[in-house]
């Protein structure tokens, strides 16, 4: 196994082993924290897909995280009230089946990303960063002002949606579901990046002119990557909604976009398990520093600053000792 492979395996082992150990020790809340880390990691894996491999710095991924959450919340609340979602063109009911909700959340995010990406990819560099932020802010303000599903107050659905055959309210089971999806997303990312499409995407990031010269049009490849990236982050949003049994515009806020970006950069941009390391460290710090001081966000800031200044490859960069691949 290569050094990077060892690090990947070790990081996942820490996440999964930690959750199981906490479960055995009866520390249910630590299992919940590990679940939160797994979900954030999944959101980060989604962003990393576009940002790390494709060089598409999206500052608007909260849009997809929040949309995934809202699809989940809306379907679940309709399932609870029994009121159909729409009756035109045909009757569509809500559902509380995760296996139905996930594809729906991913579909909605994919379509949104198709529209946002098609427009945003006309720009590049800083302009791309800011135009993705603009689209996310539009959706955020729409959600704040739209009363049907709670507006700023958000939408509660009290009971976690169901997964066939298991009790999703049980913390370790729920952790297993989320981590399972995280592993799937990691395998998917690794496979795609080694395939023709992934190689073309990375080539387009490193040297756009040459990519064009060999007859590949970067636009189509980037748009596809952006859509896939949004779908993964949207799935994470769906899980986050289920973790809290609640969605609100806060999931769509630019702070959320910033946090997802932090997971990726903290862990290591363009590294397969970078977002896993970043999300784990972030969740752990948020939890532990809170006990140190009332002004703990400043301590978090200092740690982030230290990593970005002195360890530019992120955590995975430190662990593998290799140069950053971006």
């Amino acid at each position: 196994m290569s050094r990077a492979g060892t690090v990947n395996a070790a990081l996942l082992a820490v996440l999964i082993g930690g959750a199981i150990a906490a479960h055995l020790a009866g520390e249910l809340f630590v299992v919940t924290l590990a679940t939160k880390a797994a979900i954030f990691a999944l959101a980060g894996v989604g962003l990393n897909f576009a940002l790390g491999y494709g060089g598409l710095i999206s500052f608007g991924h909260a849009a997809f995280f929040g949309l995934g959450g809202y699809v989940t919340g809306i379907l679940a609340s309709h399932a609870m009230s029994g009121e159909p979602l729409t009756t035109l063109p045909y009757t569509m009911n809500g559902t509380n089946e995760m296996l139905a909700i996930w594809p729906m959340a991913m579909l909605v995010c994919g379509l949104a990303a198709l529209a946002i990406g098609a427009l945003s990819l006309r720009t590049s560099g800083v302009y791309f960063i800011m135009v993705t932020l603009a689209f996310a802010q539009m959706i955020y303000w729409f959600a704040v002002g739209w009363p049907r599903y709670g507006g700023e107050d958000g939408l509660s659905f009290y009971v976690r949606n169901v997964f066939p055959g298991v009790n999703s309210m049980q913390p370790l089971t729920w952790f297993a579901i989320c981590t399972g999806l995280l592993l799937l997303a990691l395998v998917f990312t690794a496979t795609v990046m080694r395939a023709r499409f992934g190689l073309a995407l990375q080539a387009a990031r490193r040297n756009p002119q040459r990519t064009v010269a060999v007859g590949i049009r970067p636009f189509g490849i980037r748009l596809t990557a952006f859509v896939l990236s949004a779908m993964i982050t949207g799935l994470a949003g769906s899980l986050y909604a289920d973790l809290n049994r609640f969605v609100s515009p806060a999931m769509l806020n630019w702070h959320m976009s910033g946090e997802i970006m932090v997971f990726v950069i903290l862990g290591g941009v363009g590294r397969l398990t970078g977002p896993v390391a970043g999300a784990m460290l972030f969740v752990a710090m948020e939890h532990l520093l809170g006990g140190v001081s009332e002004y703990w966000p400043a301590l978090l800031g200092l740690v982030l600053l230290g990593i970005v200044l002195f360890a530019p490859g992120g955590i995975v960069g430190i662990l593998t000792g290799g140069r950053r691949r971006v």
Partner: peptide
């Protein structure tokens, strides 16, 4: 709100 929910979960669990 999400942080509040998680703190509540911890306080309860």
């Amino acid at each position: 709100p999400d942080v509040a929910v998680q703190i509540a979960d911890r306080m309860i669990q």
